[in-house]
Design a protein around this nucleic acid. Structure first.
Lengths: 337, 337
DNA sequence: ATGAAAGCGCTAACAT
DNA sequence: ATGTTAGCGCTTTCAT
């Protein structure tokens, strides 16, 4: 039953025309008489013909694939970016192909190379800070490339993201404006995650400008999670108990911190103000206030994919646009009570 | 600079052999003299040759793509399944291609059809309850298919999942064993999510067997989230306040419920025992106890991909295995205190 | 408006 | 062990 698949020749035969006419009729390309268009499309439907994109691609030198390279598949942030990409691509006839690097630059290069060999219509790559060889790869790919999440740097082609350093700076100022002075930093800054590093740098710089320096810093190489955040907070507080604010590298670990504080009876935010990053849905529902910076993750994916689609549409091999999306600081989140 | 890509002919020329010898040398296929293998691989490396998988696929009638169809990209559960798949595939030379259906059966059929046209090495599809036409599609695909998440039913080919109905049953028994009798159900059972429906059915059946019936039921069509869970819980409790247990369709909404209870001063689990499903990392860190059923999401993805790889390895177009992974009920989770 | 021929880059099958 | 010949299924010339 898994017999050989139908080809264009079958459609042509069924419709009583040549392969070429059938091909054109199915794609609405070139000049074909209305009568033949009908006949061919009818025949194709009847015999259940599905085109072979592989043959098409080989002939065309182009595919309907969009490569997407992210550092982590299970991180909710990238899952949401992916959802945005999927949404933008959903009715376009393009298909995303996902590659995951696990924050490993060698794997990243390998993944990108593998994707390029498929000649995708475009590539969406996380981050702006690839090592030079990888950067070269992207530069000479000869197809639209959009780097996402970050705008602090120079993209090889297009770029959709947020100002990471500035996000850190802005939050530092906001915390100081709230009167916090004894501030600690807790981060899961994986080596490959330059965004977190930039935020932290911006944060510390702004503190310094206000004459404040971090009371303490605790950085872990493990992937971020609520559980990790809880453990790190316990550890941090065992070293520094005279704290009025904690800046975390993201919401996950900040939420873990909050859970510890609730168990330990530490009033949040009165005694310690906890600060995450991303503005996850979860944070809106928490039984205590934690501060965060909302980031447009879904929209980043959406926009990035749209840029690729536009370029593909114009048969351009460049995107050449830099899009900075706004973030929003929220120091009084919490469920409407 | 984006000049025409190098082809096998270029490698052959550089190495001073025929295209065929070059092809064989690069794939370690057929008999090639050691000397020529060296020469060809050396030449390929030097000129920077990358094979063209599209041409390869057209010739081979097979690709190194593995199609993956999931209902949601942003749901952490599927993100973790994806991570498992990615891990299994990572060094195999196979690439996942993701399709998202948004719990829409028409989109699911369309997505599967689109993937099949690429002749992937295999297909991983969420769920066991596709409508008949889609089922036919899978049946006649002529390639290994693994349906995931669920084992309550008849897969078209292979299958890796958990016993959903039984999971509901088991939790009902456990709750009754805890002495709970006034039990309510809150679910985000999207129409397409037959797994949640099965759990609920199993749950209610086991209650009935114990002579207990649900005090109330609140079902929403919106996607599940912590925020949604919180709202639904508020609504449920406004109708039924004489409750000692709530069974939610998953952890996300259960956590939302917990947050409401904490704010409302309802002692959890003393007054109301909250019950989720999945055993998310988040649940381990909560400042109060909620019950849950741990599910091996990562492992489901891992196993499913491994089955595809095995089949591809043996050039089989069937998997023909049903793997049921165990779940584990946890009524006393909570961070080590 | 339609069709015939050539070729996209590779590999299976058949020589040698 | 190596090379030659035919495709894989489609589209892009180029005729008609």
């Amino acid at each position: 039953m898994a017999g050989k698949r139908l080809t264009l020749a079958d459609v042509a035969r069924a419709a009583g025309v040549s392969k070429m006419t059938a091909s054109r009729a199915l794609r609405n390309a070139g000049d074909v008489s209305r009568a033949n268009i009908e006949k061919v499309q009818q025949a194709a439907r009847e015999i259940g013909y599905i085109g072979n994109p592989i043959a098409m691609s080989l002939s065309n030198q182009r595919t309907n694939l969009v490569g997407v390279v992210v550092p982590s598949a299970s991180n909710i942030v990238f899952a949401e970016v992916l959802a945005g990409i999927t949404e933008a691509l959903s009715d376009s006839g393009f298909q995303p192909v996902i590659g995951v690097t696990d924050y490993n630059i060698d794997r990243e290069a390998e993944t990108i190379r593998g994707m390029l060999s498929w000649r995708p219509a475009g590539l969406i790559v996380t981050g702006l800070d690839q090592p030079e060889p990888t950067r070269q790869l992207l530069e000479h790919a000869g197809l639209p490339v959009v780097q996402i999440m970050d705008v602090d740097g120079t993209p090889t082609d297009g770029c959709v993201g947020i100002a990471q350093t500035e996000a850190g700076t802005a939050m530092a100022r906001a915390l100081i404006a709230q009167g916090r002075r004894r501030i600690g930093y807790i981060g899961c800054d994986l080596a490959g995650d330059t965004r977190a590093t930039k935020r932290r740098a911006g944060f510390e710089a702004a503190l310094a400008a206000a004459g404040v320096s971090l009371v303490g810093t605790l950085v872990s190489e493990q992937p971020s999670s609520v559980v990790a955040g809880r453990k790190l907070t316990v550890e941090f507080l065992s070293r520094h108990d005279d704290i009025d604010c904690l800046y975390y590298s993201n919401d996950d670990i900040a939420v873990g911190g909050l859970f510890h504080c609730m168990d330990a009876g530490i009033p949040v935010p009165e005694q310690i103000l906890l600060t995450g990053f991303n503005g996850l849905d979860l944070v809106q529902a928490l039984p205590a206030q934690i501060a965060t910076t909302h980031t447009p993750r879904h929209e980043i994916g959406l926009k990035a994919a749209q840029l690729i689609l536009e370029a593909a549409d114009q048969r351009s091999n460049r995107v050449d646009r830099m899009i900075e999306l706004p973030t929003r600081i929220d120091i009084t989140p919490g469920f409407p009570r």
